[in-house]
Structures are given as structure tokens and as C-alpha cells.
Amino acid sequence: MKILVCIKQVPDLESRFKPDAAGVWFSEADLAFRVNEYDEYAIEQAVKLKEQLGNEPEITVLSIGPDRVLEAIKKALAMGCDRAVHVQDSAAHLKDPWQIASIIATHAKDQAYDVIFTGMQSQDRGSAQVGVTVAEQLGYACATTLVGFAYEGGAITAKLELEGGIKGVAKLKTPALVTCQLGLNTPRYPTLPNIMKAKKKEIAGVPVADLLKEEALGKTVSFHPPAKKGSGLILEGDVSDLVEKVIGILKDKTAVLR
């Protein structure tokens, strides 16, 4: 069996974001990057599937982006992926989801992957498109928002999260692509020996021009902060002053403190 996991590196979301010079995405200055949270569940599910099948499957992890994404790739290798493809693209943030998907599909076309895992969405862009679009481009069966995954004899039983805590259960035959939701599993922390082992694993660098054949279908006009809807009060300062102020406001504005 051959497995592919697609991961994106995203900025730490507790950062402050400022527009870049072109005004269409964030400036990377002062930002720290990490693996997209949803993709950590994708990596973990791939590794669990490999373990379930007696470590026979080979897991490839793929990420499109500038050289900093090598850090994300190394984490995936330390978590148990076997080899990596780094699609080198310093302008990945300017590609639309159709193009990102087409890069992945072009790579996957002659690899005959049985199962492809992606995140349900990326935390910075949040289009929730790339996974499903890859499946469409490859003609794979696809299910989204997985909170449960089981594999047996060439078929996946997927638990799909719906609104209000209800779940749907669906069965799909491989080759298939699934998109992973938060809470699907418990992503492991890479151990030191595994981090050392990962250093020996192959990372193939591929220039994006080798895989990208498609034009963008849409474009970003601007990147900006939300128009401030919040009419709320912002309180800063010394903790004991803050406590007194909050108590005062709650007594004034609510009926919960008598």
C-alpha cells in the first residue's frame, strides 16, 4: 500500500498579522511557523494505518512552499512518515486552491497512492478546497471532515462530522482521499530517537514549475483586518484594578451579581 499525506505550514495564529507589500497576504516578518493543526491529525492517521498493516505501507509526505516548510516536513518524518516531497515554491501563497490541488494531483497521478490524507482546511487560508479538489482531479472517492477512520480489506469506513454533534457513517473503496477534522485521533509527539532517525529519510526537492500546469481561477484583491464591529470595552492594566473594574461593570450591566 502507498499512502500520501499533504501538509501545509501555517503561521502561529496568536501572532499579529500585517499585510505584505503587495497587500494580498500577510508579511512573514516576525512570524513563527508550524504544521497546520488539521494536518497533524492527517499525519497521525496515516502512521496509525501503517502500524495497523504491520508497517508494510510506505508513507510519503508532501508540502508545497518555501524552504521554511522543511521544518514541517521534518516533523512529519519524525512522527513516522517514510519519505518526503518538498515542492519548492516561494510564491505558494499566491497560488489559488485549484493550482495547489493541481500540483498535488500532478505529483500523485503516476504514483498510484491507495489512500491520500489531507486536513479539512488550512488555518491561515481556510478554503477547505484543496483535498476535495485533488480527489476530483484524480477521480478518487472522497469523504470530508473525518472524526473516525477504519480500514479493512480495501475499504475505508469514515465517520463524518455533521452539525450539532451528529455524525454520518460512509464507506468508500480505495483509492480514496479523506480530509481530517480536529479530534480524529491524538497526534503523537516525535520522540528524540525518531527525530534522529528522521534525519536520514529522503526529502526530494521538486521545483514547482515541474508540477504546475494550471492557471489560477481566481485572485486575491486584498488582505486586511476586519472592519471593527466590536463595540465592546477593552480593559488593560494591573490585575487587581482589572478585577475591581470588571466587578463594577458586572454589577452595573448584568443581573448576575447581587
Binding site: 500577510f26 485549484w98 491561515d124 486584498s222 488582505f223 483586518p225 476586519p226
Partner: peptide
Amino acid sequence: AQVSEVVAIQEGGYEVGCCNAKMRRTLKP
């Protein structure tokens, strides 16, 4: 083109949230 999770219609495109809802983008098919 697909534009996901539109929060508002704007002149020149659709506004969507990004960066965990901290920021916005305007997209145009």
C-alpha cells in the same frame, strides 16, 4: 473559481475570513 465561506459582498469581490478569523481577504473569481 470557488470562493469559500463568504462573510460579505464587497465592491470588486467577496470578503472571507482568514488566519483563524483574525484577518479578512477580498477574493475575485
